[in-house]
């Protein structure tokens, strides 16, 4: 579903992505892992078209994303920090998103998260009055709202309380089972254990490896993702 071919991106003298190539298919749940500044977020932003790559190209569903925008109707994105116009209410933000997506997406809306996060009573609250966690819930709810084929979640559980975090995980698993492609970045590796089927490990803008979780545990002899990654890093 996503094919990145030789993607490079420089911010000034800093190389964020260096000849990066990767292929992600439907039904996979991929953890995007790497130390800080390894280019994870840049990669995500490149897929979303927020960052324009210097060379190489990316296709989503066989369509080159350069100068295109329609493909994003297939993507649900949950940003690391969700900030919304201060004076909009949650309801208005949701309405706006529905307005924007409305015509392209005739599927039923997926309001599971709104209900399970208990956002409904808060619909008239202004965004600026919300806590970081609640805002994160709104972001998550938005990402799943339109039943997208591709979900990109940037640090989804950061800032969420354990209960909500569990709800979100359940949701991710259920979506995975529907055959969607899910890309997750997280620093809390222990959380990813039950979720992911594949791991992409990045360093300095390069792809270190792209393995299934089974392959990884065979290679490292570790069952837990956290320990496996730790071993990989030590070996380097």
């Amino acid at each position: 579903m996503i094919i990145a071919t030789n993607v490079s991106k420089k911010f000034g003298s800093l190389t964020a992505l260096n000849d990066f190539s990767v292929t992600c298919n439907k039904g996979e749940c991929i953890a995007l892992i790497g130390p800080n500044g390894s280019g994870k977020t840049t990669f995500i932003k490149t897929i979303l078209g927020m960052v324009v790559c210097d060379s190489g190209f990316i296709t989503v569903n066989g369509c080159n994303i350069k100068n295109h925008w329609e493909y994003r109707s297939r993507i649900g994105y949950m940003p690391q920090i969700g900030r919304y116009p201060d004076n909009m209410t949650i309801g208005q933000v949701l309405d706006m998103m529905k307005d924007i997506r409305g015509k392209q997406n005739k599927n039923l809306l997926d309001e599971d998260l709104i209900i399970s996060f208990g956002l409904q009573p808060l619909m008239n609250k202004r965004m600026r009055t919300l806590s970081g966690g609640t805002r994160q819930k709104v972001s998550a709810a938005l990402a799943f709202l339109f039943n997208p084929e591709l979900l990109i979640l940037d640090e989804p559980t950061a800032g969420l309380d354990p209960v909500s975090s569990e709800i979100l995980k359940e949701k991710i698993i259920s979506e995975k089972q529907k055959g969607k492609l899910i890309l997750i970045t997280s620093h809390v590796l222990s959380e990813l254990d039950d979720l992911v089927t594949q791991v992409i490990y990045m360093q300095d803008g390069c792809l270190c490896f792209h393995k299934t979780i089974e392959q990884l545990s065979i290679d490292t002899g570790q069952v837990k993702l956290a320990k496996a990654i730790a071993q990989v890093m030590q070996n380097k």
Binding site: Y71, R72, I75, Y77, I81, R83, Y84, I100
Partner: peptide
């Protein structure tokens, strides 16, 4: 102040 909001909009199917 709308930087993040703009990001969010950019991630949506909008020109």
């Amino acid at each position: 102040n709308s930087a993040e909001f703009i990001e969010l909009l950019v991630s949506q199917p909008l020109k």
